[in-house]
Write a protein that binds this DNA or RNA. Structure first.
Lengths: 232, 232
DNA sequence: CCTTGGCATATTGTATACAAAATGCAAGAG
DNA sequence: CTCTTGCATTTTGTATACAATATGCCAAGG
């Protein structure tokens, strides 16, 4: 995301443990609502309880875990309301990113984004979903970078991680996919026109569509992610 | 803020330590940039290193501390850019709260808010700054509560705490005070008219004014809070 | 005079032992 | 038969000992 500094990138033990746990949660190995046994996880990760507990604190701060006093930690189970709320906030954040990006974007940035957009349309035409997601994410990241706001970036990333823990490879049907691609093109054009308000509206709308897709998938499928929320 | 549940409210030791540290930071006993010595703080707070370190993790997650591997924790020193960014995000969040509140507000809520607004204007007329701040906060909290979005509330509170660590009892001159009160009245009216877009714009503008006041105070005074940022 | 290497000290990181609390089960009372 | 009550076990919470790392000082070399 940042890419500028790389001081050998040594990970502390709690950080490494948190990273590993995060992966276990996202890939579903640790299901939403699952109770986390410290001793068991210690063996599994090869660390002692102290760094593991610090990892717990980090993940709890990210909203991936909930810690109950004297009763251990468990993987968060997002309720429908949580998902709704998170997407609403994400929309506001992306909208802000768009407005800020307009103020700082250069012609070179726009050329880059147009190129990415073209690449994305190629993946769309070729029905290459993984590549599409990759470029899609790249574009959104680029926009966030243009906003040049560390607090925004950090907040956005945390929220994003929380939602990704749901593993919604949202059922992207052809019609929605077409629409998403078209919306993306409009965004780039709004950015090129330096129309902050329009870009903001597009981004908010884009997020609202994504939200609807995820909420629908939570309703329709008997998805194991929907567990009645953090407080059943 | 919530007020509905109170299960005797026993605080865990790390939570208590974090709370105490938070207070020390906000009241300036621990200055921005200060290095936190674990053993010293352990004695001062009467806890051992393990819960203290968990408190560190919590505060770091809140953005009040930064933890450097093998080099301990220190109180965050917000740069001008950090403050700018934080206020930008706060503006987007408050704007969202306004839009959401419009969708859910009842006539009774509006009556309550009008009453609070009147009280606030009394404190304004009487030049009672502390009471003004108290009611001001009450109104903003009420708006956030109306938004009915837990993620939003949580994000907002965290950001707010981070900025409060700066202890900006911002130099509120009479002209700005008058304007702030007037803006508040407009907000209530926009809410009563269920005009989400207008309310949003008012809130964003309100925050922008606050931001400007804080940034000015950082520039003008040789405030000890301004320390060149987290990375000098 | 400045730089560099190595040592002593201080500080943080990790593991583990002990304490406190919760959980589950079984026995007994209503 | 259900509900409580007490105990054994499990699990989490806290303190502390030990290990690893960083820091500061001093001396030797350039």
């Amino acid at each position: 995301m940042d890419g500028s500094t790389f001081p050998i990138a040594r990970l502390t033990l709690p950080e490494a443990a948190a990273e590993r746990l995060r992966a276990l949660i996202i890939e579903g190995e640790l299901a939403p609502g699952a109770k986390l046994n410290e001793r068991e996880l210690c063996e599994r990760l090869g660390v002692s309880r102290t760094p593991l507990r610090e990892a717990f604190r980090m993940l709890a701060a990210d909203g991936l875990l909930v810690q109950l006093p004297n009763r251990g930690a468990q993987v968060v189970a997002l309720s429908r309301e949580d998902v709704r709320g998170a997407f609403e906030v994400m929309g506001a954040l992306e909208g802000l990113a768009g407005e800020l990006a307009v103020a700082r974007v250069t012609d070179a940035d726009i050329a880059d984004l147009r190129a990415l957009q073209n690449q994305m349309e190629v993946t769309h035409a070729g029905h290459d979903l993984p590549a599409y997601y990759r470029i899609n994410r790249l574009i959104h990241d680029r926009l966030n970078a243009l906003a040049d706001n560390a607090v925004l970036k950090q907040t956005y990333r945390t929220l994003n991680a929380r939602l990704h823990a749901l593993r919604f490879r949202s059922n992207l049907n052809p019609a929605k996919w077409d629409q998403a691609v078209a919306e993306h093109r409009s965004m780039i054009e709004a950015l090129a026109a330096r129309d902050g308000a329009a870009l903001r509206d597009l981004l908010v709308g884009h997020l609202r569509a994504k939200q609807q897709a995820v909420l629908d998938s939570m309703d329709n499928r008997d998805d194991k992610n929907l567990q009645g929320g953090t407080r059943p």
